[in-house]
Amino acid sequence: MSTDSYINRPNRPLQVYALIFLIVLYLPILFLPLFSFNDSIYVRFPMQGFTVQWYYDLMARSAVWAALMNSVKVGVAVSIVSTVLGIFAAKAITRYRFFGKEPIVIFIMLPLVVPLIIFGVALLVLFAQLLGVPLSLYTVAFGHLILCIPFSTAVLMPRFEGFDPAIEEASADLGENAWWTFWRVTFPMILPGVVASLLLCFTVSFDEFIMAFFLTGTDATLPMYIWGQLRFPQQFPSVLALSSLVIIGSFIIVLLGLWINRDADMTKTKAGTDA
């Protein structure tokens, strides 16, 4: 270990701290898959033996599938729209100087810090009271969109900052108009950010409860469905099974996002150092 620099030397207390941190963070979550295989409707030790019955139950229930499909529909739509709007916002913020830019940036980022319950109530008032729009998956999607745009913008901004505007100018100089320049140059260069934004927005929307609580009509999203099932004790193990699947799904998506972005960061720093 003599090759380690001072700053890279292993630090025992820090390692212990990191370990405790991870345990506190993830242990509660690990109970979900653990008890989803427990052969009892009560969540308590000692456990009663192994079963996959709750998963079978889940498969058989059409309401689960309907809720899942609703969540996927909302998630896909929200992630696409949010990413498109995020591209515009990130490009405008990083490339152009315009009047009132700072306030607008703060405005876009506001949903990250304002309590969601406030947004939820405000949108409910807007839709139900003022506009008379019936609550549906569309209103849920709208709420999620407000929540996701700051994420998309934040993920995409470093992509635009990371490349020289002269590259887009070079494309124009070689005869391509704005449309072709976007598809031949800008889009491929920000693609890792686009993928990250799609995945992030999908997971945010998929997990979101508070907005959905206020804005859902008759069609429940998956979190709403899970919440509804909690009233019935005999359903609880299936809820555990469902939650376990959601955790695994989210985990895969997050890993995928990290993996794509890790690749992108490497090419970026490489291009940066020898440019």
């Binding site: 020289d164 002269a166 100018e169 494309s171 124009a172 100089d173 070689l174 005869g175 260069m189």
Partner: peptide, 20 residues
Amino acid sequence: VPPHYRPVNMVFQSYAIFPH
């Protein structure tokens, strides 16, 4: 006349090679 219609081409000071 926008850049993409001008009968000129430029070699940029920063090269501006398409990295992808």
